[in-house]
Design a protein around this nucleic acid. Sequence first.
DNA 1: GCACATTGCGTCACTTAATGCCAAAATGGC
DNA 2: GCCATTTTGGCATTAAGTGACGCAATGTGC
Lengths: 239, 239
Amino acid sequence: MADDVAATERSRGGMSEQRRRRVRLEISREAARLFWAQGVDGTSGDQIAEAVGLSTRTIWRHFRSKESCAEPIVAQSVEWELTSLRSWPLHRSLEEHFATEAKRFVNEISPLEQADAGLGVKMMRLAETEPALRTAWLMACDQVEHELAGVIATRLGRKPDDLEVRLHAAATGASLRVINEYVGAGLLDGADPRELGDENFAFIADAVRTATGGAVGDPVHVDGAPAEPDEAAADRQGI
Amino acid sequence: MADDVAATERSRGGMSEQRRRRVRLEISREAARLFWAQGVDGTSGDQIAEAVGLSTRTIWRHFRSKESCAEPIVAQSVEWELTSLRSWPLHRSLEEHFATEAKRFVNEISPLEQADAGLGVKMMRLAETEPALRTAWLMACDQVEHELAGVIATRLGRKPDDLEVRLHAAATGASLRVINEYVGAGLLDGADPRELGDENFAFIADAVRTATGGAVGDPVHVDGAPAEPDEAAADRQGI
DNA sequence: GCACATTGCGTCACTTAATGCCAAAATGGC
DNA sequence: GCCATTTTGGCATTAAGTGACGCAATGTGC
């Protein structure tokens, strides 16, 4: 019943894992659209189900609650930060890395993902007045913080559950959240969507440095390899 | 948080604002007890009602949802931080102020409040595994952050919605949250409850200084009044 | 003291979010 | 094609949460 097998890739898990995410994201898209259009309380599970073309029962199979339908869209809106953070090489500064990542991100993004990002910002805004949605937003930030703990632990050569690492991760995550909220609010109020210059990344990086007492943000000196980072170090960060 | 069934003004029918809070706290106490004993999902609204000796309908008159029944107890567990922060004189350092506040707090606390504090810690722990409760905890932290924005704005001579102030408040709040979680976990795992020495306040203050790049934590120099760093003046507040 | 308005509470009926159960459809390996 | 597993839909059901009405308690004016 449970699992098996070693030989092949997984028949059940492998495909489903990916497919499941797609379904959840599709549901989340419609739910977010409806939430924004008519509010959370004004949107019923049946409406979401009808909009996405599934039965109501199936909606509750994919999401534990109505509000959690917004989670994938919100999570995806911070996904680029997460992947950027995960691939942050030890020897680079935060502004350098974010700048190149943002460039790559802008080139690779599809119209659909762009629309999703817009929905994510709208959910962020909606979260300010709808306590039900605030959970989704705070949960996403929570995940960022957790991921940050791993990244910071690597850069400082400590454990992720080290108290100091947790403090740095929490402060960094909180700063990123405030900046996200600030930028998102600006975008919704009609700010120029193409205003993300290099000075913004410098601002973000400085905010992180301030929040961590300078412990996070700068390149990390690796023992014995001052000039050029060796393969091992690069591999650990997965460039 | 304060938005359940907004009790607008009160003058006519006598007791409300104050009595209402008491009723809510009483309900919250029983709810927290049950949540801790049998989990959130394992506790029904009827059980809470029976435990507190009210009808189920009345429970829903005081709380909009089952999980929100835990909010008052959680909020009260950070209340001392809130009041301490609010009364933080410009000319005192954070460790000084927290030390004296903690002393006053320990002397004034009643057995009931002590039990409530214990329940609050338990809800904090429960929030790690019960997403429904995590909202209550994160909401309480949210309020702390908001309050912090006001305090920090005063100390830096800026506006509470200033971006830098918001960043400092967020980073400080996140640090306090981590420390709360850390201390709370330690207490629940059987740590000595009377272990809160002065070095702990120094640790907290240093964490805040680190999270704000040194901008918050030290005495603030007021124009024309030379600030004495140590035990000089203890009973003055100025804005 | 008595009528009075106001408010809180309880009871019942009701809507809706959410789960369990079972059968039909879809999916993937052979 | 066949079979095993998973996914889905429909239906019944539980539990969360609301609305409506009546009653009891309390405060106010007389």
